[in-house]
Simulated assay, not measured.
Amino acid sequence: MFTSPYGPIAHLSTPPGDAIALLVPGYTGSKEDFTPLLDGFAAAGFQAIAIDLPGQYESPGPDDEAAYSPRALGTIVASMIAGFDQPVFLLGHSYGGLVARGAVLAGAKVAGLTLMDTGPGPLTSIARLEALALGETQLRANDVEGAYAIRDRVQSRFPGWVALDEELKAFYRKRFLATNPACLLGMGHWLRTEPDLVDELTLALGKTPSVVITGEHDDAWSVVEQQEMARRLNVPFLKVAGAAHSPNTENPAELLAQLIPLWRTWLKLT
């Protein structure tokens, strides 16, 4: 059982392995986003643990928007990591990448860091920023259904969303409505305002192996700015073919094919 100051942290987990892959989801995301990766990580010898951050889907969280900053959530992730007795490879997707960075800045001792489809600072997608602004108005009017309807309309601009089956879309709606509105508002605020902390992260990582990886058609943070972030961190930069903002669901086989050999080399360093 994993806990935060607000209650249990919901998670999916595979059997123990040589190391732990701790998987942190993004804004409006959940542990289920990593389901396509779990068996692959397990087969490669990693215990995969995918979590809902506090306030997301099935993890309780506070009604304080400030509690959902990357720094605040990063402290909680760092506390989780401190309780493990095996090497931890921390992977953060999208907003989860900002949280993973916050965990390292909070002193988390990781054996490797993977930043996936995330950026050095604020979100840069105009469409997504518009959705956040419009959704905030609905959320502050206590109209979570209306906020989701706005998100659905914006997502309909993206081919990947249009191609999803209706059952999966129904699940996305269900988890959005189950997420604490303060979580949605808080994360939405920091998606628009999170400062560039790449230089601080570089110092905190020291010689810890790391990688920046993105879908080749990412539509949240641009591929170019993620490549520049990797350059500043002095770490490898990888692209997943046939994927946009969520390689974990759009091309999980290719994502695993790139990450697992790299992580195995990191494991030899521990």
Rank of each mutant, 00 (worst) to 15 (best):
D63I: 10
K174C: 04
L255E: 12
I126R: 11
D152E: 15
A78D: 02
I213W: 10
G7W: 12
L98N: 15
S246E: 15
L256C: 06
R173M: 06
R153F: 00
E250I: 14
T3C: 07
Q155E: 06
G29T: 05
F158M: 12
L105S: 12
L73V: 09
Y95N: 12
T137Y: 00
L134H: 01
R264F: 04
G242R: 14
A42M: 05
I51P: 03
F158L: 12
F176A: 00
L115W: 10
A44S: 13
L255P: 04
Y148E: 06
T208N: 05
P25D: 11
G146P: 05
G29E: 07
D219H: 14
A170D: 13
L205R: 07
M116S: 15
P36T: 05
N248L: 14
H189C: 02
L90P: 04
A72Y: 08
D152T: 06
A78Y: 02
R140H: 01
G74P: 14
H189G: 01
E58I: 10
T208V: 13
E136K: 04
A19Q: 01
E216G: 02
D199A: 13
V224I: 09
L168C: 08
A141I: 03
V154M: 03
A204T: 08
L98Y: 15
A10V: 03
L12W: 08
R192Q: 15
S156L: 10
P54R: 13
G206S: 09
A243Y: 11
S30Y: 03
A10G: 05
P25S: 13
P5F: 11
P236M: 01
G188A: 03
L123D: 07
Y6S: 14
P60C: 12
L233I: 08
L91G: 08
G29R: 03
I49E: 01
M1F: 11
M229V: 09
D199Q: 08
M187P: 01
E136W: 00
G119C: 08
T202V: 04
A21L: 00
P195C: 06
A141C: 01
P5M: 04
E65C: 10
H189R: 15
A182W: 14
A127S: 03
E200L: 11
L168E: 14
L262S: 08
L197D: 10
A133L: 05
G146A: 13
D196Q: 05
I49P: 03
